[in-house]
Design a protein around this nucleic acid. Structure first.
Length: 805
RNA sequence: GGGGGUUUAGCUCAGUUGGUAGAGUACCUGCCUUACAAGCAGUGGGUCAUAGGUUCGAGUCCUAUAAUCCCCACCA
């Protein structure tokens, strides 16, 4: 018999039980259809926050729904624990810098710290009631995943889809690494427009030029004006003298120059921004490098050499002011592309690096995006919009330490690229040698590649990792789970994780990685603010939240968000969840108190019992339809509405029969028992998707004896079958019950308006305008609102309820 | 500048194919009713952002406009 519900005890107990009994284990031999989820491996870069719980819960509800509707669910878990985010975490936590120690030493520290966080992550997800199969755990830093990542790279390189090239790439001087277009974030930054004099070398005049980057004057290679700009027509073809450095550069024309911006004349440096890059390539301009990898000025900058970009800029402005070469300054706020991880403005740097070809297959990537079902559908536009606007290949070389090594060597003799062989993988070229001499020249001296991969190079193959692609493209698992059914993630990584995964799957398997993508929103602290790490206080700390309110209630809150939309963290919704959990407990305790030793028998049911079952079946159909559309919030809304109706109307009506079989008869009582037994059972199963703990507690206490599954989470959602009255249609049964509720409501209103207690007896009511069959429910109406007599006025067609006290 | 979301009750949001505006919550009122006062019952509260259009009929379809949020571009 159920006592008081103690969620702290109960939740831990069942979590342990589920793990020990492998309740969520994927069974590769099962004959059920498979639903495979490409779970996002959380980045190991700090603590779990409430946004994780929100976003993961939504996918988790899908997993549970699919499990309970007959699918064999492949729901793995992973950690993304290599690369810059983990390095930063380790540097911060251990108060060290990666470059101050050997790569091996640093790697060990990374593994140590990552392991600690991964344990915490895993515990946190289990604590939130997550039903991933932790037997399917992977980590992107593990040898097998490294092997898959390297194999992917080598395969692409051999198919000319990955290539090694010396070309300008986006560079973060703070992190000292190349970054991809997808890692840029536009930021509005205050700056100055500095107006400078560029005198003509022949002394015949002076060109005025506005620049935000005077520190790059030493890298100036030419000046551009628009070919149609009449103001500067006489300058074209002549030479001007660069201020401060006093060397000459030509005045050229290009129609990309804006007539309105600045003075209409622009200096081109290699490289100040991407337009400079464009011009350098188009006009075959020389390349001058004024900034080094660490964001300091080079010898080219003369007396500013060694200064950081910002300092150099301030210094040269002072000098230019003194020399009067700077004649005007204007405050502006301009958009600057920055590295999303550190906020530092990007630079352009030329290095020999590895790239993955994106530009040649944009059309295919767009087509593939169109073939995927996006939930919500409008998120597809974001993907298509991004792919359309991609304008460079994906640079995957990262000049860092803890990550997947690029498995190649370069022949010291002839420069030939030598790839690791598959049997060598995973391979660190710094500590191993190629298995053969150079194929081209026979040389035996190799220069190992020092760079590692962008983390996305690895995480873009999570469907292949999950499918054990590394074991061969025809292994049993890949045939079963690939393409996967579902990719869930938040909207911020559509352009990275979703896009790159589509790219990789297309290149490797000529197929989609998954059929459906489900996009969740962010959790906001309030209307304007994301929950950031700095705001990760007790209110938003998932562990504290769960300790205080329970995992079920936290999950309930997560279920109320709608797909793709940001949600504001709400105490109100938490309260509603707590009320719901409490109500489920009380209602179950009450109903089950009448069902001890009950043996369900299919008997003829009273009309009102048929009504609640018919309503349930309809509700369940709607619930399933919502889930098929990934509308998790609407699904629970439907269930909740039914549940409260069940409590407030059905139980109120049925309890008289349950209490007093001698008054109402054995058959009527059996009918009430059957209906409440069935409806509660099936409702609990549906609630189990959202509230796995409390429902399990009730199930294990009572329903396990009937369902013969060790956990409610192994049961299937079912329609309730019973003998419905053959003289009435299901619609009529539902209509009659709803009409009865309407009559009850009128009586209750009357009592409420007259300040009467609800148990006050009403001598009679006159009703008209209802179906004649309403008299079949007379007993129930009378019982629930304590009415002595009901009179039917069959002549009056107008719907009326008259109450006589 | 390009793309997308949102706009419905004080608040948070539902509203399927066009057919009398919904829920929860808050407010207010009543009720200790043989599960639950963390409960039950009930009242009030909306020019469906604005302006046009299509239609017998528009929250819903079409066209503009506005506000607001997001993505992309804008970096001289």
């Amino acid at each position: 018999m159920l006592n008081k519900y103690n969620f702290r005890e109960s939740e831990t107990k069942w979590q342990k039980f589920w793990q020990e009994n492998n309740v969520y284990k994927f069974d590769i031999n099962s004959k059920q259809p498979i639903f495979a989820i490409d779970t996002p491996p959380p980045t190991v870069s700090g603590h779990i926050h409430i946004g994780h719980i929100f976003s993961y819960s939504q996918a988790e509800f899908m997993a549970r729904f699919k499990r309970m509707t007959g699918y064999n669910v492949f729901y793995p878990f992973g950690f993304d624990d290599n690369g810059l985010p983990t390095e930063r975490l380790v540097e911060k936590e251990k108060k060290i810098k990666a470059h101050e120690m050997s790569r091996e030493e640093f790697g060990n520290l990374c593994r140590e710290v990552a392991q600690k966080y991964e344990q915490e992550f895993k515990e946190m997800f289990i604590k939130a009631g997550n039903s991933a199969d932790f037997n399917l755990l992977y980590s992107t830093a593990s040898p097998s995943v490294q092997k898959a990542s390297q194999k992917s790279f080598i395969e692409l390189a051999k198919n000319k889809l990955a290539y090694y090239a010396e070309k300008p790439a986006i560079w973060c001087p703070e992190c000292r690494i190349s970054i991809a277009q997808a890692e840029l974030e536009s930021k509005d930054i205050p700056s100055f427009f500095n107006y400078l004099h560029f005198p003509l070398s022949d002394g015949s005049g002076c060109l005025e030029i506005a620049t935000t980057r005077p520190e790059l004057l030493s890298a100036c290679v030419c000046v551009f004006v628009h070919p149609d700009d009449k103001r500067y027509i006489d300058f074209v073809g002549k030479k001007v003298i660069v201020p401060f450095y006093h060397f000459e550069v030509p005045v050229l024309t290009d129609d990309k120059v804006s007539l309105e911006k600045g003075t209409g004349a622009v200096m081109c440096c290699t490289f100040g921004d991407e337009t400079d890059l464009f011009w350098q390539e188009k006009h075959f301009l020389p390349i001058k490098t004024a900034i080094d990898d660490g964001g300091r000025m080079t010898q080219l900058a003369g007396e500013f050499a060694g200064l950081k970009i910002k300092v150099a800029r301030e210094s040269i402005i002072e000098k230019l002011k003194q020399s009067k070469e700077l004649y005007k300054q204007e405050n502006i706020i301009h958009a600057v592309s920055t590295h999303e991880r550190c906020g530092t403005p990007m630079e352009i740097n030329i290095k020999k690096q590895w790239f993955i070809d994106l530009m040649s297959h944009k059309k295919e990537f767009l087509e593939l995006g169109n073939k995927i079902n996006w939930f919500p559908s409008f998120m597809k536009s974001r993907y298509l919009n991004w792919v359309e606007n991609i304008d460079r290949d994906w640079c995957i070389s990262r000049q860092r330490y803890f990550g997947v090594p690029i498995p190649v060597w370069y022949c010291k003799n002839c420069g030939e690229i030598v790839f690791a062989e598959e049997k060598q993988l995973p391979c660190n070229p710094l500590t191993t040698q190629p298995l053969h001499a150079c194929y081209k020249c026979g040389g035996k001296d190799f220069e190992p590649e020092k760079d590692i991969f962008d983390t996305w190079q690895t995480s873009s193959i999570t469907p292949l990792i999950n499918a054990k692609w590394i074991d061969g493209e025809n292994n049993e698992l890949i045939k079963k789970i690939y393409p996967m059914s579902l990719r869930p993630n938040a909207h911020d990584i559509i352009r990275t994780w979703d896009f790159y995964t589509i790219v990789k799957s297309f290149y490797h398997t000529n197929s989609l990685p998954w059929k459906n993508v489900m996009i969740s929103g962010f959790v906001m602290a309030d209307k304007d603010n994301k929950i950031s790490k700095s705001k990760n206080n007790a209110k938003f700390n998932p562990s504290d939240l769960i300790n205080e309110k329970s995992a079920d209630v936290t999950r309930y809150w997560a279920s109320t968000g709608s797909l793709g939309r940001d949600i504001i963290f709400s105490d109100e919704e938490m309260k509603n969840g707590a009320k719901l959990v409490n109500k489920i407990w009380n209602a179950s305790k009450f109903v089950l108190s009448f069902l001890q030793n009950y043996q369900p028998k299919e008997i003829e049911l009273t009309l009102i019992d048929q009504w609640i079952i018919a309503k349930f079946n309809n509700m369940q159909k709607n619930f399933i339809n919502y889930f098929e559309r990934y509308e998790i919030g609407l699904a629970i809304g439907e269930l909740e509405k039914f549940f409260w109706n069940f409590c407030d109307n059905y139980i109120e009506i049925a309890k008289r029969r349950l209490y007093n079989p001698d008054v109402y008869g054995e058959d009527a009582t059996e009918s009430a028992k059957f209906s409440s037994f069935m409806v509660l059972k099936e409702m609990l199963k549906m609630f189990a998707i959202y509230l796995p703990h409390i429902t399990e507690e009730i199930y294990k206490d009572f329903y396990e004896n009937y369902e013969h599954e060790i956990s409610i989470h192994k049961t299937l959602l079912k329609q309730i079958s019973c003998h419905f009255d053959k003289k009435l249609s299901l619609e009529e049964i539902i209509k009659l019950g709803d009409d009865a509720c309407e009559i009850v409501t009128s009586v209750r209103r009357f009592k409420s308006e007259n300040n009467l207690s609800l148990k006050e007896e009403i001598s009679s009511i006159n009703i008209s305008g209802f179906s004649q069959s309403i008299n079949l429910l007379e007993q129930d109406i009378k019982a629930v609102c304590t009415v002595k007599n009901i009179c039917y006025d069959n002549k009056n067609k107008e719907k009326q309820i008259i109450i006589n006290k």
